[in-house]
Design a protein around this nucleic acid. Structure first.
Length: 373
RNA sequence: GCACAGGUGGCCGAGCGGUUAAUGGCAGCAGACUGUAAAUCUGCCGCUCCUUGGAGCUACGGAGGUUCGAAUCCUCCCCUGUGCA
């Protein structure tokens, strides 16, 4: 068995409260997934990520393939064991790197030729290869190899990109089904298997998105993601794509919007019926001194906090806000102390996870309120 | 005391007759960050005015001098480092 999706509540607006039973963890949704590209949620140790309540984190196929190498990780017993993360994981397929490393790659129908950003060496990624790497890594959820379509993209370009992503989705799925039992923990966890999600593309073109969703649903993945968002398009466009695609996806499977977003965005998408989201923003911004608080954004590097004894967020009870002042966090940033990135990341992750926690309870509350009427 | 080498904007450090308010780096101030090539990147960073663009003022240890023109050349002085006494 791959995953078991238990839909608990659904609101009139389409919001869902559910559980995803995965081999390493039952995940309460809607969920925010911290990003741990290279086998680490940057600057935050696994035990802390756990204590913050994160139930699932990401890893990245391309980055882990290059270093330390997926076969090395397989020999270490898989990604969970290698990084000592007992809960659920999801690996992105490398599709985003097709987009973000645009200068270093060449795309063909067969796959993508990458030049390593580390040493310039050449590597060829195909959907089959991405699956092999992801199976070796052994995340609970693997993603189909896609091309993240850039924005802006002409209709022709979006069509071409979608054609590629759909062909790759088919190949990803076929190869994955044939080899999913080869994941490192397959026998150890009673024959449970990884899940594979398909990724809807199509740019900002509603009909392309529809076509993409319908074809993927027909292929029957374990869950569905909406990709190609937050790549520079206006926020209304993001919203429109999500609102347009969600109704096309099966209700009994997880829905994942990739790479979002700001606090208000993830809160909103959760209410609309998105089950899973991930974003580097809370951790990256944290390392750069940007804190997300109940009062909005706070650039903790600003001089005005130099002697501010208040916690970063007056309304937050995370381990950082309980203990440290704005003045201290600002000082750590000024001094270039690595602890700054760590503490800032802990707060931002706590903030993001808190938003989702409240979203979950409010989704349930709204539902019971509705049924009382 | 003598001999070398030096004294440049908050700091370090280029420049060695004009295009120099003066390259860089650091520090400082502000901004950006959305499936992580990101502990990164961008802008500002002598003073005072006006609207962008600019105008004026003050600046390369100090004082003189040479020159149309000096941070850059000359003289004296002050200070610092190293070596010798």
């Amino acid at each position: 068995m791959s995953l078991n999706f238990n839909l608990m509540h659904e609101t009139a607006e389409g919001g869902r409260r559910a559980q995803i039973d995965l081999p390493h963890q039952t995940v309460e949704t809607p969920v925010f997934m911290p990003v741990g590209t290279a086998g680490s949620v940057k600057a935050v140790a696994q035990d802390v990520v756990e204590s913050l309540g994160a139930e699932i984190i990401l890893g990245n196929t391309y980055h882990l393939y290059l270093r330390p190498g997926h076969e090395a990780i397989r020999r270490m017993g898989g990604l969970h064991k290698f990084i000592s993360w007992p809960r659920a994981m999801l690996t992105d397929s490398g599709g985003f790197q097709v987009y973000s490393l645009a200068q270093l790659r060449k795309v063909s129908d067969e796959g993508v030729r990458f030049r390593s950003h580390l040493d310039g060496s050449s590597h060829f990624f195909t959907p089959e290869h991405s699956m092999d790497v992801q199976i070796a890594l052994g995340a609970d959820i693997a993603m189909a190899f896609d091309e993240c379509t850039e924005y802006p993209a002409t209709r022709e370009r979006a069509e071409e990109s979608l054609r590629l992503t759909m062909a790759w989705a088919r190949r990803s799925l076929d190869h994955f089904r044939a080899h999913r039992h080869e994941t490192p923990w397959h026998d150890e966890l009673g024959g449970r298997t990884q899940s594979l999600f398909g990724i809807v593309q199509g740019g900002v073109y509603a009909d392309l998105r529809r076509e993409s969703a319908e074809r993927l649903v027909e292929m029957d993945f374990n869950g569905y993601a909406i990709g190609g968002l937050s790549v520079g398009e206006p926020r209304e466009a993001t919203l429109e794509v999500i609102a347009g695609v969600l109704p096309l996806l099966p209700k009994d499977k997880p829905r994942y919007v990739m790479g979002v977003g700001y606090p208000d965005e993830i809160e909103r998408y959760a209410r609309m019926g998105v089950d899973m989201m991930d974003c580097v923003l809370p951790t990256r911004a944290a390392r750069h001194g940007l804190l997300f608080t109940s009062e909005g954004r706070m650039n903790i590097k600003n001089r005005q906090y130099a002697e501010d004894r208040n916690p970063p967020d007056l309304a937050c009870d995370c381990m950082v806000c309980r203990r440290y002042s704005r003045a201290y966090l600002r000082h750590l940033m000024q001094a270039g102390e690595p602890l700054a990135g760590t503490l800032n990341s802990i707060h931002n992750l706590a903030f993001y996870l808190g938003i989702m926690r409240r979203a979950r309870s409010s989704l349930t509350a709204i539902d019971s309120l509705t049924s009382e009427r």
